[in-house]
Design a protein around this nucleic acid. Structure first.
Lengths: 341, 341
DNA sequence: AATAATTTCGCAAACGTTTCCGTATTTTAA
DNA sequence: TTAAAATACGGAAACGTTTGCGAAATTATT
């Protein structure tokens, strides 16, 4: 409510012009060291805090970046944001964080609210519903700095950070096969998602390389309702064509699978071996049996997004964010859920 | 980067004064319906987006509230933020989200960064290191709207939202006793924390009511390092005076306990019964055995914080946030970890 | 029909910065 | 010693809104 002194009052106290005080505080070469000292000292004394909005208005930058993600209750996204915060905070940037709850309408609304300059950049992972990308394309066309991570939008020519989805999936599937699986289910959120496509491709290629072919009924597309997902997975697991292996492309579906399995008499890993993209390592080790995971470099993804952004935003004449996909490798951690017995 | 038209340009296009356009867009009574229509139409057409900083500077409010929490990778805090976002978004407010990582120095720095008006209010849960509260007291003394939730600061006369920590702990401990436990361990983060104090009090009173007395060596204060916590808990569980029941005051320590137990030959619930404050219901059911939880009204806590704040911030002449503690009850969900066999 | 009241709008100040430009003072160069 | 250059600072405009005040145009009142 009551903000402290402003620049004018500080200047009056010092018997200097506001412009001089401003320059002194910003360490301008035009100001003598002597007055700089005095100004800084008095600013400390009066606890002067520059008004961020006046500054933003004048400089046309907000020192704020927006993070848009599909859900907050996910160790993956939480860790990515932690990584982003780690580096942006060092540069004095603040984070506006939004969750779309996998709702593309909400995503559109959030994006439109950010088109007025409230944030200097957006780093986001699209919702599973996002197929029409016009709202994102418009953002980029206007020159708004935009970075994607994980669930990317390949049509938009900007920088994207992912993990090596294809290779990890290939290796993960190969691991299942090596452990004896012949009928491997695939769990995904939405076929529109970049991660789904890439991970599915890796899965398919690994199958093919082993001379196996996918069973359509074992490819389960899930939705947002956890209970429905569990039931769909349970139905698949107990169908005629029941699988002996399962590849989950996202963390939440691995958890749903464990729930589903609990409702059956299926034994992991004897009857069913499971591998999943997963970020919550603590939980992975606590599941029974412990879950073999494709562990994503979550924190690092966030850090890299932020580092690139900081370079772009803090250096004076930076080029646009290059149109490239940067991949940071995951690593497979083998636990009990895939050990052949 | 390139913001669209501004008010002046929009006014020029309409051959009106900026003031008129501003009033028209804000639905002022001084403007005729006819010109309002025209203005709104043209604003839509040119996709006029008001500059939030000019507005903030002029109105001295940011339409932003800051959320400060100890960690992001926690289902509890994630859900609270979801609740906050749910209601603030409806009022056009944005969320700056900060994690202190349980570091009071970081907490201080964040708070000091927010004293310049960047946010209209703060809703926070203090770090486990926070014992000196001068930074928070100063904030409140300056009239800055401040709300605490969960880990509150009772010395500061503002509104706090908690769950019924004492009663839930009393009931939870009583439940353990009813299931046959006689030596019940207590796990906590820091003794400074409000939730620790209240939950410990409930635990002690329940023991006393049953004619039991606490064993000092079974009261474990944990820190931030997960591995150390696990080892400390393991040591306690395998000591001379090993407990037959365990009350965990926070979610992460219940998970640490399961890890610790895995390193021993202790059987849950035969040798050790466990109950914990817990928010991640999906995980609770997936642990082996499934965990009896004191389930907090996370989303609702967030919602209530935000509702109160919105009332305070959007209505014209609101009184200060009343000095009161509002408690929203948890409910105990009994699962396998406490079932007597 | 003349005055008062109302409606509708424009002008200009203000919010708190930063920065362009000008100028007085000091230092350097010739 | 004088001109030129460098140093150190002040005045004022600008960023894009909102709003107090004044004024013109219209309508209502007597």
């Amino acid at each position: 409510m009551s903000t402290g002194v402003n620049l004018k009052e500080l200047a009056a106290e010092l018997k200097l012009a506001p412009s001089t005080v401003s320059r002194a505080l910003n360490d301008s070469y035009e100001i003598s060291e002597a007055t700089k000292k005095k100004v800084v000292f008095m600013a400390e004394k009066l606890n002067y805090q520059p008004n961020p909005f006046a500054r933003s208005l004048r400089e046309n930058k907000s020192k704020t970046i927006a993070v848009i993600m599909p859900e907050r209750m996910s160790s993956f996204f939480a860790k990515v944001v932690d990584g982003i915060e780690e580096v942006t905070q060092q540069h004095g940037y603040h984070l506006l964080v939004y969750s779309t709850h996998e709702d593309v309408e909400r995503e559109k609304k959030i994006v439109s609210l950010l088109m007025n300059g409230r944030a200097d950049a957006i780093v986001m992972s699209v919702s599973s519903q996002t197929s029409d990308i016009s709202h994102l394309a418009k953002l980029h066309e206007r020159g708004f700095p935009l970075i994607f991570f994980d669930r990317i939008c390949s049509e938009i020519p900007t920088t994207k950070f992912i993990t090596n989805d294809y290779e990890s999936s290939y290796e993960g599937t190969k691991h299942l096969i090596q452990q004896g699986c012949r009928k491997i289910a695939f769990l995904m959120l939405s076929k529109e998602l970049s991660i789904t496509k890439e991970r599915y491709r890796g899965y398919l290629d690994a199958l093919q390389a082993a001379g196996l072919s996918p069973t359509p009924s074992l490819q389960v597309t899930c939705a947002h309702d956890e209970e429905k997902n569990i039931e769909a997975i349970r139905a698949m697991l107990t169908s005629e064509d029941r699988p002996d292996g399962l590849f989950s492309s996202v963390e939440k579906l691995a958890l749903a699978t464990y729930h589903a399995v609990k409702r059956t008499d299926i034994k992991i890993p004897q009857d069913l071996k499971i591998i999943s993209f997963f970020s919550n390592l603590s939980i992975a080790g606590l599941l029974t049996p412990s879950l073999t995971t494709i562990t994503q470099p979550t924190f690092e993804i966030g850090e890299e997004c932020a580092k690139l952004l900081m370079k772009k935003l803090t250096k004076p004449r930076q080029p646009d964010l290059p149109n490239q996909v940067i991949s940071i490798p995951s690593k497979i951690i083998i636990r009990s859920s895939t050990i052949a017995v």
